[in-house]
Design a binder for these strands. Structure first.
Lengths: 347, 347
DNA sequence: CTGAAAGCGCTTACAG
DNA sequence: CTGAAAGCGCTTACAG
């Protein structure tokens, strides 16, 4: 057991083993060039004293830390939680620490990243959903350290990226409800700044136009708390007043928005409106009706991001790779409703 | 703009401002004892060069880092995501970094915490739900640095703690369904190791016994993926086979379990069984029937934990405080169902 | 194979 | 008010 007063240093271990700090360091980490016998003595002393290296000192000396940074837009969103979990796991396996920071709620990217850079992290996973301008702050960063972007709208020429094909996702979701006879379909995004969601909207518009229907979209904004209230107001506007024909299907571009829409539809008691969403939600099979979703494989996205990052950290020097992880449609019912007043026969 | 090749050091700033590192350091952080004019020159040089302090060096010199550690059981669970978000926010406001680690999935506490200790974090927020043995590893830690426990079963004599009154929560949830005429009520926990959930079960048993009914409880385990399948199996066993009278109400002790139960009840199409849970769930108002919950104010729990931790870090030396944040019952319908075949008049 | 020495970038008594 | 010097704990050329 380590004494709980003050951490034991390498010199303590060396002294206990009857050698010098230099040799002790080599015995514990350096590997080469130490007698087996002496190395064993050092390792035992380290064990007995409960030694663990002071990483600040090591990092200062080596010029980079065995830690990576993770920049996330919002920790309360399950998507990001899963990314963090995967990255932390990969880091832990390699003996790396993980320092996190939040880029949301009005903080600038510089401000968000400073706590990471000032700790000399060896690389960065950036999952903000909004970043990715090739001329931005991240590009600057990516030229001096490995950066992997997650859920980024565009592949940057300076960094690796892992995500989904957003345009195709929007198209596929749209085609799903079109196939069930819908023509007046509303797409709901979170806001113009969420560029991945905007790409999904683009896919939606492509699919609508290809089918000969007019696209119609709106935004709910970013704050989950307010989302349900806004959704009620927004939906009432589009659902029709009995005289004008309203929309018959709703598509949600992202989980946060789905949460709001699901509550709003429940409050309005409109279970007749078809509804499908990008991103799965916990309990979606218990919704009324059960929610059809186009699911992202978030675990794979997080795991691949970590793999790419550590490959770079370990020196891999290939061209930036932009990976797209396949999506999976989970049909649970809500997206398969036919438009009210119309019976489908062919499907 | 900072050059992107190599970080600028304090000595660079000092040189640019025509002074020494000592004075530059004092001008930027130390505060006292530098001419206004010189201080201004240093600050401008720092700004122009894009200087930001190397925290590893600072920490090494000062003996402790301006960073805190957060130990979490599982980042994908919204409860912990909210704790992390709150703590990160508080840390950021104080110029502290946040390094995280996961204590779940078979890692020992020592192993989980090592990456934090080896970085000399100034304090720890520990949210593992299972820890809290007064003689454990954490107690050892708490004697050498500030530790705040979140969601801990017992108040440790060595550290602050923030959470809820778990026994009272179990009692209150139980009394809710008892008030609607239920007598055969099943409590579902996650596993014997989750001691906060076990305390909730204790409250449930107290309430059942006080009402003269026999308590009946089971566990679903920890893995969210398997939970729904296990829940189906478990529920079939308790719901009765038509000849024997089954349970008429189910209580869930924690969010992960609720997710499984909600899916299982949907699959079994048993909307007649009353159901109430501790912890709110996203979309709970869209469930069928809408889910009644006893909600934890997780944001307040996280915020208070951070406040306590930083108070300790800044030197506050009061006795360990064990705070319990009030709960809120959200009645949405699922817990208010009367037992099938029995009509209530009095409520 | 081993150890004395230098140095990573910072802060802080200490002397002026 | 200012600066030269020491030292936080480690690693790594360098010399032996």
């Amino acid at each position: 057991m380590a004494g709980s007063t003050s951490r034991v240093r390498l010199v303590d271990v060396a002294t206990a083993a009857g050698t010098s700090p230099s040799t002790a360091s080599r015995a514990l980490h350096g590997g080469a060039g130490v007698t087996d016998e002496l190395a064993a003595r050092v390792r035992q002393a380290a064990r007995e004293l409960g030694y663990s290296v002071n990483r600040q000192a090591r990092s200062l000396r080596r010029g980079h830390d065995t830690a990576i940074g993770v920049v996330v837009e919002d920790f309360t969103i399950p998507y990001f939680g899963t990314i963090v979990a995967q990255v932390e796991q990969a880091a832990h396996e390699r003996g790396f620490g993980v320092v996190i920071t939040c880029a949301g709620s009005g903080r600038s990217e510089e401000e968000a990243v400073e706590p990471l850079l000032s700790r000399n992290v060896a690389g960065l996973v950036v999952a903000t959903g909004t970043a990715g301008a090739p001329e931005g702050f991240l590009a600057d960063l990516a030229s001096s350290m490995p950066v992997v972007q997650v859920d980024a709208p565009l592949g940057s020429p300076f960094s690796d990226a892992v995500g989904i094909d957003n345009v195709a996702a929007g198209r596929r979701l749209t085609e799903h409800v079109l196939a069930h006879g819908h023509e007046r379909v509303l797409f709901v995004g979170s806001g113009p700044a969420a560029s991945t969601v905007e790409l999904r909207r683009e896919g939606y518009e492509q699919a609508m136009r290809a089918a000969g229907f007019a696209p119609l979209s709106t935004h709910l904004g970013f704050l989950p708390v307010e989302t349900a209230d806004r959704a009620v107001v927004a939906l009432q506007q589009y659902l029709g007043d009995g005289t004008t024909p309203g929309i018959t299907a709703i598509l949600s571009g992202v989980a946060r928005v789905t949460m709001g829409l699901v509550s709003a539809l429940a409050r309005l008691d409109r279970r007749d409106v078809a509804f499908a969403a990008i991103d799965d939600l916990v309990g979606a099979d218990a919704f009324n009706p059960p929610l059809t979703v186009l699911e992202q494989d978030v675990e794979t996205i997080g795991a691949r991001a970590a793999q790419l990052l550590f490959a770079r950290i370990e020196g891999w020097d290939g061209p930036p790779s932009h990976e797209q992880v396949p999506l999976r449609m989970i049909e649970r019912g809500s997206g398969e409703l036919a438009p009210a007043g119309r019976t489908l026969t062919a499907f």
